[in-house]
Amino acid sequence: MSRLRLANLLMVNIITLVLLLAPTFVIATKVYAESQPANIDDQVRQIAKDLKCLVCENESVADSPSPLAADMRETIKEKLLAGETPEQIKAYFVQQYGEQILLTPPKEGFGLLVWSWPILAIIICGIALFFAMNKWVRRKSVSIIESSNHVSDTEIEDAEILQEIKDRRVSELW
Rank of each mutant, 00 (worst) to 15 (best):
T104C: 10
P65R: 01
E160T: 13
W136N: 11
E108L: 04
G126Y: 12
L80H: 00
S147L: 08
S60Q: 10
E78S: 10
R138V: 08
A70T: 09
T16H: 03
D41T: 14
I165Y: 05
V170Q: 06
L162M: 11
N149W: 05
E34T: 04
I127A: 11
R73D: 00
F110S: 02
P106Y: 10
I14L: 13
E57I: 08
A22Y: 09
A91Y: 02
P67K: 01
W117P: 04
Q95K: 03
L173S: 07
K79L: 07
A7L: 07
D167A: 05
M72H: 10
R139S: 04
M11W: 11
C56P: 00
R138I: 13
L80M: 02
D158P: 03
E99T: 12
L20G: 02
Q95I: 02
A82M: 01
S116W: 15
S147F: 04
Y32D: 11
E146H: 06
M133D: 15
I89A: 03
L54M: 12
V61L: 03
S35H: 15
K107A: 13
A132C: 14
S148L: 04
R139N: 10
Q36W: 14
D71G: 02
L10H: 03
Q46A: 15
I123D: 12
R138H: 09
V114Y: 15
T75I: 01
S64M: 00
N13S: 11
L81S: 05
K140W: 12
L162C: 05
S35I: 14
E155V: 08
L81I: 09
I127N: 06
R138N: 10
G83E: 04
S116D: 12
S148M: 08
I124R: 12
F25E: 07
D153M: 08
V12Q: 04
E34F: 14
E84V: 00
L162T: 06
V26S: 11
V31N: 11
S152D: 14
L68Y: 01
L54D: 02
L162H: 08
V26H: 11
A128W: 07
S152G: 13
L129A: 15
Y97W: 10
N8M: 08
F25P: 01
F130K: 14
N58G: 07
M1N: 06
